[in-house]
Design a protein around this nucleic acid. Structure first.
Lengths: 363, 363
DNA sequence: GCATGCTGGTTAAACGTTTAATCTCCTCGA
DNA sequence: TCGAGGAGATTAAACGTTTAACCAGCATGC
């Protein structure tokens, strides 16, 4: 089998110098249009593929980006990886993954390993509560607009506000918000956003799963039934994973969704569209976020300073079956302080699955 | 800021040649033990990190592996990525990800892109029904023992058999198996395994979700209630995602799990342990699979031939709340053809969440 | 008719590593 | 005393690319 062709092969075959070939293919030096054409043709004919190693050695750029997700086990990882890979590869970069196995220390180690491996820059989705040390290398942080040093991220607050507005417009006035951990900026933003869009008179309770699990062990029930009995008509979870937990727990206790209570999530994870009832949620614009992060990274690689603190990309509300009007129970169906419009930098919500609760159609 | 130190710096600082330094650090040439020590110390002192680019150019090896998952959006991807990354990085390799966006054509393109990027070898988890063309480069295929060209994978048949044996031991005699697509070797293995461990007199039905969705649109209900009415007491899904779908659909229709029917899944996906009821499932030994795949790849990179067709790594049954004894209904509780033991190459099942159905404990 | 400047190209060095070939002592055996 | 051989180091080439510096023609302006 023949070794893969390089600049020298092309140059020899055409009787020109390697420099000319290099210039012609990169379009940089001074080469006649005619010569350039001939060279390009020959390159294609021979199936020339530039050696990244050679180029890297010469330029000092590997054209590889590192991707470090604090919690690689997170169900959102595939979406991130896919979006970053796409954005990077469009820009001519490869993506090297680094794993920190959920460990905070390991996060820094993972970043370092990638740098040592020659990554030109790193995309980090940090573990909540972590501050990324300045590594002396281009870095893009995707966390939350309220995290200092954040480069770009979804506008979680705004996403929360859309959920809040949605529930509010359905006349829910007693709402429980389910979060995992109060240290996470992302989650706090989401919670804050939800609250911000509810009328002042609304009653809000907060549940942190980590606290419950510390007490009762991982995978424990959340004990949502008492809340329902106390009049809560909607559970707004800060992630679809928790929403799922809520949905199954409630259904198991015989609570009808969305007949008795509504449940909403966050992130549009894989199961959101296939469970029964399908889940109302809010989705990040991953593609856009990845584009911005990668673009900023590449700017940095080329010498520009890091982006000033980070834009928030609007989220997209997706209304499915799990949210419906609050039951007109004892709490009354007052119509004061009606639905607030979501902040205006968002698109309208997507309405999916028009099949409503109670329809008995099979599929 | 100082440029990162290289062999020349060390050599100069010590008044020796670069070759000696290289030899000392790699332990290859002939260097006195004393000299080697001095060089290693100096290298550490200067914080020397070898340039992968230089090494790659010189040796023709990039020490990077490519990972291409046909369906990068699959919830199993994080586990794969994590395991492969760990195995590779332990062996001194980095992992470059390639995305095929679920498209079969793109799968080959993705593989090629990674090869062009200089990956020494590729790990592929192909889309069902795909045959990986010989790419002229080291490749490791993780699919199913019954796929020709498979390098290593979980023993899906055995996993199915464990599920089958488990259900059988709980006296289920009318079982519906839920799959996605009949073209997948993995799924067929799982289905076959389940059937193989059921007594001959058991009644088995097969449901393919893709066929249902073709008819009724994506995200449609599966219409499981009629099965229950016909006497089915257990639904064995070929993935936790489908199991989840079944659980929510059944619960919504007021069917109690595992009181009325049992539901089992596959893969121990993220939600399996936190939904209510927690899901009985079967888990791959990802770490082991990744190790074998990476080891084989490295052997190939070093010139050895590809592994002969692939070993199956045993799966691990995890018994949780969603499976229980068949209700002693009209079908009777015959105790003939009792529980078959699972095939003997497996460990015993893991029993989690001893809290049983009906316990009202909050968490 | 000659300095000037542009065009299209070449030469050569550089990036950091590995490795085959070579060179210099030194010791040992005959 | 001399050749052989081995230990410990050096020299130099090679990997494939980029890029600064240089050079030969050729038209231009005066």
């Amino acid at each position: 089998m023949t070794p893969r062709p390089n600049l020298t092969h092309i140059a020899k075959a055409l009787g020109v110098s390697v420099a000319t070939v290099s210039n012609a293919l990169s379009g940089k030096g001074r080469v006649s249009e005619e010569m350039a054409r001939v060279i390009r043709d020959k390159a294609k004919e021979l199936g020339y593929i530039p050696s990244l190693a050679g180029r890297a050695l010469s330029t000092g750029r590997s054209h590889v980006l590192g991707l470090v997700l604090a919690d690689i086990g997170h169900p959102l990882f595939p979406q991130f990886a896919q979006a970053i890979e796409h954005a990077a590869s469009t820009a001519g970069y490869g993506v090297l993954i680094g794993d920190s196995r959920g460990d905070i220390q390991a996060q820094t180690r993972a970043i370092n390993r990638l740098v040592e491996r020659g990554a030109d820059g790193i995309v980090v989705v940090p573990r909540h509560g972590t501050r990324i040390a300045d590594i002396g290398h281009p870095i893009a942080v995707i966390d939350s607009p309220s995290t200092p040093g954040n480069t770009v991220s979804a506008d979680h607050w705004n996403g929360g506000a859309q959920i809040g507005a949605h529930l509010s417009s359905l006349d829910h006035r007693s709402i429980a918000i389910i979060g995992l951990h109060p240290d996470s900026n992302v989650q706090n933003d989401r919670v804050g956003g939800i609250k911000s869009a509810l009328p002042e008179e609304a009653h809000v309770e907060l549940l942190w799963i980590d606290e419950l699990e510390d007490k009762h062990g991982p995978g424990c029930e959340l004990g949502l039934l008492p809340f329902v009995e106390k009049g809560v008509t909607a559970f707004a979870a800060v992630s679809d994973l928790h929403a799922l937990r809520a949905v199954t727990e409630l259904q198991r206790r015989g609570v009808s969704i969305p007949g008795d209570v509504s449940v909403t999530g966050f992130d549009d994870l894989i199961w959101a569209g296939v469970i029964a009832p399908t889940l109302t949620t809010v989705r990040m614009n991953m593609a856009r976020i990845a584009e911005i992060a990668v673009a900023d990274l590449i700017r940095q690689v080329e010498g520009a300073p890091a982006q000033s603190d980070g834009q928030g990309v609007p989220m997209q509300l997706i209304i499915r079956q799990s949210s419906g009007p609050a039951p007109s129970g004892p709490a009354g169906n007052r119509s004061g302080g009606g639905p607030r419009p979501a902040t205006n930098k968002t698109n309208g919500p997507i309405l999916e699955n028009t099949t409503r609760e109670g329809s008995d159609q099979t599929c």
